[in-house]
């Protein structure tokens, strides 16, 4: 029997246990709420540290909701997290963390007194950027368990997560460094004349301007990341695309493959378009008095 609803359910939730689906739905709903809150924070010019705490808090909350096993929540196996929710959550768990990491590494690259340290870090992230994401995903599932202590078991999901963070981080660093170059030298001079230097200068003068300059490029990288989460299918994670492949291999759904591809394509199109629209809103609110 052809059953569209159960097929859609399989595409979006995969093997997640039925009783716990509300948790996943809640975690997914948090993502757009976080996006709206970020625009709100930028609009009211809250301190960056508040945004940071908010972001990390919501990340922890979604992690706990989807795969945590607290006192209230039943334990859910990592493998059970699948479908479109896996794509969205992977993107959500890697985008803010990669951005924060990239901002930190940029501080080292810009301010490090030893040039060799900056060189080594630059080389590492250049290597990441020169490799296609599939190769990184593929090899990290193989090699990460070897690099860590054998007692520490790294699942494929965790390996994919780490890979996505570092991959996105490598591109974000490049964007940030470009944005740093775009800051006029008058800004650096006046900061020095006012006696602001080091971390304080980076935090209060460089970083806000870098974020603003790099916003369009950042958003298109984020959209790329949302699309790239489908690659985890190649290392055998049951994301939406993997589930779709599974679905159309069944006899009942075999002849509707075009419809299913269109549905999945539409869902990704919608997500990416919303992300782009969110970026436009963010750009508009961080306009600093320019018309």
């Amino acid at each position: 029997m052809f059953d569209l609803l159960s097929a859609l359910d399989f595409l979006s939730f995969g093997f997640y246990p039925d009783i716990d689906k509300w948790r996943l739905v809640l975690a997914i709903v948090i993502i757009p709420m976080h996006a709206v809150l970020t625009v709100f924070c930028v609009k009211n010019r809250y301190r960056l540290s508040y945004c940071l705490v908010l972001t990390l808090g919501l990340q922890m909350l979604t992690l706990w909701l989807s795969i945590g096993d607290g006192a209230i929540l039943r334990s859910v196996k990592l493998d059970e997290l699948s479908g479109l929710c896996l794509n969205l959550l992977l993107a959500y768990w890697s985008i803010p963390l990669a951005t924060i990491l990239a901002a930190g590494i940029c501080f080292i690259l810009i301010n490090a007194s030893s040039k060799s340290l900056a060189y080594i870090l630059g080389l590492f992230f250049d290597l990441i950027r020169s490799l296609p994401l599939v190769t990184l995903l593929f090899f990290n599932t193989l090699i990460l368990p070897m690099l860590f202590n054998p007692k520490l078991i790294i699942t494929r999901l965790e390996a994919a997560w780490i890979t996505l963070i570092f991959f996105l981080c490598a591109y974000t660093i490049q964007i940030f460094l470009g944005a740093y170059e775009a800051i006029s030298y008058h800004q650096h001079e006046s900061a020095k004349a006012l006696g602001i230097s080091g971390w304080k200068k980076y935090r209060h003068i460089d970083l806000p301007q870098m974020l603003k300059h790099s916003l369009p490029a950042l958003i298109s990288t984020y959209i790329g990341m949302i699309k790239d989460t489908t690659l985890v299918m190649i290392i055998g994670l049951a994301d939406s695309l993997g589930n779709l492949q599974l679905l159309i291999s069944r006899n009942a759904y075999k002849h509707y493959y075009i419809e299913f591809f269109f549905i999945l394509g539409f869902l990704f199109w919608l997500t990416c378009t919303l992300c782009g629209w969110w970026g436009k809103q963010l750009e508009r609110t961080s306009n600093y008095g320019k018309t």
Binding site: K227, L241, Q245, Y257, G265, W269
Partner: peptide, 22 residues
Amino acid sequence: INIFRNIPLLVQILFFHTLLIN
């Protein structure tokens, strides 16, 4: 441009593969 930029490449590859085979 809007459609093809906003759909993952892997989805497109698998779609064309399935389409051609079928």
